[in-house]
Design a protein around this nucleic acid. Structure first.
Lengths: 141, 141
DNA sequence: TATAATTATGATAATGATTATCATTATATA
DNA sequence: TATATAATGATAATCATTATCATAATTATA
């Protein structure tokens, strides 16, 4: 919270009612991955007239401040999640049956990244997604 | 080639002029990652009247036969590449400066996948992208 | 072979997520 | 308070992709 407020203050980002609504939705949904449309409906419970453009603008800004992480899902839609200091990388497991998105922690990728460094690359970030079945759906099969 | 023909025969996929054009474009661009639009322009050199719908249909079919791999780039566009037997997984490095897409081989991810297996997941596939600078652009900086 | 069914194609409309535009409203500053 | 600046919401525009549909090509059948 303090970290977030510091970031907002530093970039002199005014916290209007609508922006507060979006931010609150994201805070209340810590650990979940919301689409812009989902954020819109949740945010309207707090700020009933908020429009989709403002939601996009706010999510974009918060992502650029690294308050949120933004990443592509289902091949056609971004989803946003609250950033947590501990995990700078976003590794996801998508359940092909129920759509559940879980997080993978751990950083086995450092090894791969240093291989690439040796080859002359400069790696800034990475993204890893697993596709399969979550424990619950896997059991049912 | 034989493998591809076998797959096409098995699924009784008729190789019309347009489909042959798309397939040839992909064969000639082995190792490259083409968007549907790019395939369209190349294919029109062979089959001048081919339409974008046929390109999409053909790419989709070839991807479902695993003749091609399809994956999302730049957050808004699929790109297709000729599948090669050796690599069943598609790990990419995207250069943020020049847009070059290179391949990473090796499969350090098996370890991560078996961790997930132990947690009850059933992993079917994965996708890994690195973002950074290719050796050429990295040198220039 | 002629004809009927089937499949493939291309033009184009529809879709869905995202972005741009612009008039209006809210806020900050002189 | 007047004025400049920033934020907002409605909606149009964009762009990749998908759906539709009339027509053309191919295949199967009588």
């Amino acid at each position: 919270m303090d970290v977030i407020n510091a970031k907002l203050r530093e970039s002199s980002y005014r916290l209007t009612g609508q922006r507060k609504a979006v931010l609150n939705v994201m805070l209340e949904n810590k650990g979940r991955h919301l689409s812009a449309e989902e954020v819109l409906w949740e945010a309207r419970k707090i700020s009933p007239n908020i429009g989709i453009a403002t939601v996009y603008r706010t999510l974009e800004k918060l992502a650029s401040l690294e308050v949120l992480y933004k990443s592509m899902f289902e091949g056609n839609k971004y989803r946003y999640e609250l950033a947590e200091d501990e995990k700078h990388h976003h590794h996801h497991v998508l359940c092909l049956a129920c759509g559940l998105i879980s997080e993978v922690s751990g950083d086995l990728l450092h090894e791969l990244e240093s291989d690439l460094d040796e080859q002359g690359y400069k790696i800034i970030d990475h993204e890893l997604k697993f596709y399969g079945y979550c424990p619950a759906c896997n059991k049912k099969k």
